[in-house]
Design a protein around this nucleic acid. Structure first.
Lengths: 204, 204
DNA sequence: CCAACTATAGAACGATGTTCTACACTCCTG
DNA sequence: CAGGAGTGTAGAACATCGTTCTATAGTTGG
């Protein structure tokens, strides 16, 4: 009369050390496939094969997951866009291209970092620190250009801000689906190249 | 024994023709003061002094309110940035400045139009149409420049896209609070001017 | 003055983030 | 190898969200 199931119905518990990476992967997957609004605690736990409570035990709730994604994103962005070519101007062009590639290929990261304001989310101090470090990398590359004689009569943080604004604006409209350029890649490089050329001539 | 209140406790019903403008004003006020996440149907009705059901009787729910805000925003933007100076290049510069002024002064409009993705919102066909018209105004201004000899070896929709990306990027970072420029106004005009100068020289 | 219209209040439904509690599995220690 | 501490899980609970429905009451035109 006793009945023992032949197959354990499912691994009942997720080992502790697997939870964080699986939740992060599931969160990126959710944002990429369902959009930022698809990132809910219940859906996240379901896709990660984990109990909702684990989001609170291993992260600080949904905000903690967002902090983890954003910090991860800044680390990837820093490692991919901190190029070190000999020509500092080429270096800046290559960095801009790498920034755009990061945004397009890690759309979920970029969305969480710069495009979507998640309701109730405020970045943690750690997140703010990593973000500031990211801007410093860009500013450093511009400074190297200046030491090579470019952007002569401008402040390098201003040039960094202008370059960042341009690249972010182009990428944001691209991701929003409102880019009507004839050839997105070519128009992008022409865009950044033209801006650098214009910024290298004297301030009007 | 009968008691008649000397003052009617409050106007019980809002006259029909007042509801739409009051709801729109309350929605802009809510976004501006509480942020986009503060725009909830209940809070909106409360601030407008109106029943929640009115949002559904006079608009198509929350999405209808957003459509109304966005269409209103595009109309304001078109009327303010469609400048007609004699010099087409000056015209483009003035239009860019007007775009930025619109974004900064009508922050709630601009947020709904380009910065925040409201959960569950998809623009109505009418909204899409008005938005496309807005891009055509910009493209027309660029085309006038081209007829005057500027941006010679480039396609005018590409130049329009590049200019829009630049201005939107600058404004977006400004509104997000991550603009580190020494003087925001001056750096903006230097930004747009440099881009136009660079785009006027031959394509590399 | 009455009938058609419509703004209102309030309950209801499913879904959200979050917290709490009881339970069951794991794994280290004695 | 047994047992207890630690921890992942399930589920209920709370307030709030957008939305729908119903019944009521105020307004207005004929």
């Amino acid at each position: 009369m006793f009945y023992t199931p032949v197959v354990p119905p499912r691994p009942q518990r997720t080992p502790s050390q697997d939870i964080v990476p699986e939740v992060l992967a599931a969160a990126l997957d959710l944002i990429a496939t369902e959009g930022p609004e698809g990132l809910t605690v219940r859906a996240l736990a379901r896709r990660a094969g984990v109990a909702p409570m684990s989001i609170y035990n291993h992260f600080d709730g949904k905000n903690g997951v967002l902090d983890a994604i954003i910090i991860d994103g800044f680390n990837i962005l820093a490692s991919e866009s901190d190029t070190t070519l000999n020509d500092p101007r080429e270096n800046l062009l290559a960095g801009s291209g790498a920034y755009r590639t990061f945004a397009l290929e890690h759309r979920a990261h970029y969305t969480a970092m710069f495009l979507h304001q998640f309701v109730g989310y405020t970045p943690s101090p750690d997140t703010m620190y990593v973000a500031a470090k990211g801007f410093e990398i860009l500013a450093g590359q511009v400074q190297q250009c200046q030491q090579a004689g470019l952007f002569a009569d401008r402040l390098y943080p201003d040039v960094a801000q202008q370059l960042w604004a341009a690249v972010h604006g182009y990428v944001a409209l691209e991701i929003f689906g409102i880019n009507f350029a004839s050839d997105r890649d070519k128009v992008f490089y022409d865009f950044v190249g033209s801006l650098l050329r214009g910024l290298d001539s004297p301030n009007a």
